[in-house]
Write a protein that binds this DNA or RNA. Sequence first.
RNA 1: GGGCGAAUAGCUCAGCCGGUUCAGAGCGCCUGCCUUACACGCAGGAAGUCGGGGGUUCGAAUCCCUCUUCGCCCACCA
Length: 897
Amino acid sequence: MTEPLAPQYNPSAIESALYAWWRERGLFAPDANPAGSVGEPYVIMMPPPNVTAVLHMGHGLNNTVQDVLVRFHRMRGRRTLWLPGTDHAGIATQNVVERLLAKEGRTRFDLGRDAFVERVWEYVQATGAAILGQLEALGCSADWGRTYFTLDERMSRAVREAFVTLYEEGLIYRGHYIINWCPRCLTALSNEEAEKHETDGRIWHLRYPLADGSGHLTVATTRPETMLGDTAVAVHPDDERYRHLIGREVLLPLVDRRIPIVADEAVDPAFGTGAVKVTPAHDPTDFEIGRRHGLPSIDVMTPEARISLAAPERFQGLDRFDARARVAKEFDAAGLLEKVEPHRHAVGRCYRCDTVIEPRLSDQWFVRMEPLAESALRAYRDHTLRFIPERRGDDYIQWLEGIRDWTISRQLWWGHRIPVWYCESEGCGRIAVSRADLETCPACGGPVRQDDDVLDTWFSSWLVPFSALGWPERTADLAAFYPGSTLVSAPEILFFWVARMIMAGLHFMGEVPFRDIYLHGTVRDTQHRKMSKSLGNGIDPIEVIERYGADALRFSLVSGMSVGTDVILDPHDLEASFAAGRNFANKLWNAGRFILSHLEGDRPVRPLAGAANAVRPDELTLADRWIIARCDLAVREATEAYEKFRLNEAAGAVYRFLWSDLADWYIEQIKPRLYGDAPGGDVARAVAAQTFDAALRLLHPVMPFITEALWKRFPGRPAEASISVAPWPQSDARARDPEALAEFELVQQVVGAIRGIRAEYGVQPGQAVRAFVSRDGGPASAALERERSTVVRLARLSELVLTEPTERVGGHAVLPDGTSVFVPLGDAIDVGRECGRLGAEADRLAGLVAAQEKKLGNQQFVTRAPADVVAREREKLSAWAEQRELLVRKRELLGCG
RNA sequence: GGGCGAAUAGCUCAGCCGGUUCAGAGCGCCUGCCUUACACGCAGGAAGUCGGGGGUUCGAAUCCCUCUUCGCCCACCA
C-alpha cells in the first residue's frame, strides 16, 4: 500500500491481485454496494460463450461492453447482477471433439454414444474453465457464484419443462418435412443455421421427352442430380405454352419412369423455361407441390449425400456432385442437354462446417413459431423493447414477420436428449412426452425407447433469462432479477438468440426478458474482414492483455467503437491498435503517482465542502475554479454518454479531462504551490485530490484495474474500500463557473501564443525571454495578472509585462479576443520572416472579414436567419476585423514593407 | 431480387436535429526538448477540393436526389 509506485505502469503486476481481491470481497454480487439499492436492479445476462474454444476479440468486445455498463450502474447504486455462463454449443462442440478423435484414427461410432458424451464432457470442462479464466483476465465483474452451463442439471430441467409445456400447448410437433441437412455433420439444421451465400453456379436445361413420343419439355435446374428423384413436371396453370400438356406424362430420362405433368401456381412462368422438375424429397417447394398433387417422394440420397439405392444402380454410391456431373454427361450423350448457363444464386451452407446444405425429407421436431412471434412483435411495436441502435429493430421485425417453424431436433449425441419416449409394444405405439425419464409406457406398461435425437443448442439458451435464475422453480432470484435490463450482443445472433429469448420470456414468464437491446459491431481487420481462425487475422485478447494490460485493451475497444459500428483492429500491428490505451494508462499512473505523493504526509487533505476545515471559495485560485468547472463538465458529459450507450464518448470525455486539463494544465499550475510550504498548497492538494478522485470514478467502468489501484492509495482510504462500489460523481451547480472557464482559457491561449513564437524562432527551452501582453493599448485582462506566475513558468519567461511593449522587433501574435502578445527577440529574429508570418495571418483574417461582410450584407441572411445567429455573426465580424487591424498595426511597428 | 449501413488527414475514427475564427482527436510523420509524475513523455508543426455529380437553403461535411465503391441483413423462383 505504501511502497513507492513504479515510474512506469506495469499492468501485469497488479491486475490479477486486484481481481482476486474483488472476488474475495464479493464485489460482484448484487448486494456488494453498501449504498444499498437505488431503483430497480440492473441485470445483464451474459451471452454464454461456446465451450468449443478460447475467447477471441469479439468476446473481448462483447464482455467489455457489458462490464462497462454493469460497473457504471453498480457505482450508481443499482442492485447489479451480471450473470455469466457458458454454452454447450451442440454441433460446434461435437465437431471439435470428433476432430480430436479423428486424429486418433477413431470416430464417435467407435466409442459409442455414452463414451463419446463422456469424452466431450472432459473436453468442455477444460475449455470452460479456460474461458472463465479469460473473462477474469479481462476484468469482468460477473457474479461467478451464479455461473451456469447450458447443459447442467438446472438448465436441463428448464429445457424439459419448456419442451413438455410447449408440446402440451400444441406448439411443439413432430413432422415429416424438408429440412436443412448437413451431410457432414449428419444432422438437421434450423433455417438460421443454414447460411445463405451468393454463389456463382450453373443452371442446366434438361429435355424430358413426352411419354407418347410427341416431343419434349425442357426444365431448368441447378441441381441436375435430383432428377433421379423426380416424380412430376409442373407448369403454371395459366401458361399458354404448356396448357395443352397438363395431365399428360413425360418419360424421365436415365430412370425411365413415367411421371405426370401437373399444373401448380407455385411455378413462375417467367423463370427458366416455365416448366419445373418436381422432386418432392429434395426441395421444399417441390415437396409442397407434391403434397398438393399426391405425388410420391423418392429419396435418392443417403444422409451423407450420396446417391441411394432408390436410383438406378450405376449412380448408387456416387457423391452428389459427382452424380451431378454424371447426370449432365448422360443427358448430353442422349442429346437431351439443351444448354448450360452460368447462374448466380444463394446456396445454403452449414454454419458450423460450411458444407453445402442438402434439403432433405425427414422426421423432425418443430416449434410452431407464429403464435410466439406475435407477442414478440407487439412488445417491440408498443416500445416495451428498445434497440440500440434503433435501426436494428427493422431486422427484428422482418425476421418475425416472415417467421418459419423452428426445427429443434438434431441428430447429434451432444446436447439435451429429446424428452420423448416411443412405446415399443405392438399395438400400442404411443408417444409419451414427459418431464421425468420413463422406463415403461404410461399407456400399456410396455417397453419404451427414448428419442435418439438431441435439441438445438439454442433451445436451451433461449430460456437463459429465466432458467439461469432457477426457473421453473419460483426462486428468490427469479423474483428479484426477472425481467433483466439490458442485453448486449453481436448482431449475428439477433435471430438465433435474442429474438428467441424475447419469445420465450413472453411465453413462459409473461414479460420481456430485457428492455434495452444493445447490438454492438463486429471486430474486423483493416480490410474489414471478420476476424476468424481460418483467415488467420485474429487477435488473441490474452496476448494483448499480457502486453498492454486489460485496461488498455478495454480502452482501445471502447474508444474504437461508436454505437453500432464495427471495430477495426490491425492484427499485424498491435501497437497501432493498443498503444493509445497503454499510453493513457501510463499517463494516468504517473499523474496519480504525482498527486498521491503530495497527498501523503501528516497534513490531512482538506475537503472542498461540508466540514469545518473545508476550503473556502475565496481561497480558490482561478486555476482551481477552472479545473473544478472542467471536472464538473466531464462528470456531466461522461454520465450522459454512459447512459446513452455512447461508451466511446464517455471514455473520450474522461480522457480529455485527465490528460488535457488535469495533467497538462492543472498539475503544471499547482507545482509551485505543492513544493515546500508554499501558500495555498493545501488548497491545491484538496482540489487535485477531489478532481482526480472524481475522474478515476468516471473512468472506472472502462479501466477498472488501474483506477482501483490508484484510488485505493488515497490517504485515509479504508483497506476494504473499493472504487467499484464508490458513489458515482455528481454534477454540482456550484462547480459551474463560466467566468473561470473563459478566463483560464485566455491564460492558456497566451501561453500557447508565446510557445508558438518561441518554436517559430527556435528559442531554446532553457532560454528565458520576456513577453508583453496587452489589450486595447492598455493592461491585459486581470486574469493574467492573477495567473502571472503560471504564464511565466509554462511559457518559460523571465518576465511577463502586462502592458504595451516598449520594443518593436520580436514575435507578435493577436488572440481572438484582441489580446496582443509580443516577445522581444531583437536580432534573434528575421524581421522579414515575422512580417511574412503576420501578413499571412492578416490576410487570412481579411478573407474571413470579407466573407463575413458579404454574409452580413446579404439582406436575405439578415432578415431570414434567426436574430441570435445574426448577432453572433456580427460579433465574429468585429472580432476578426479588430484582430486584423491589430496585426496590420504590428506590421507597421515592425517596419514591414 | 428486396432492405440497411458506411465513404471526412497516411491509418482508425468524432463531428447528433444545417450557422461559435474557411473541419477535430488518437496513432503515424516532421522539428526541438531526458523541464525533479510520465520519452508509453513535453512543446511546436506539416497534412484533408469532408467519395463523384446535381438539388434545397441567406448558408451544407451536416438535408434531398443520383452515381460509384465497400460492407451487412433478408429472400423456396427451380
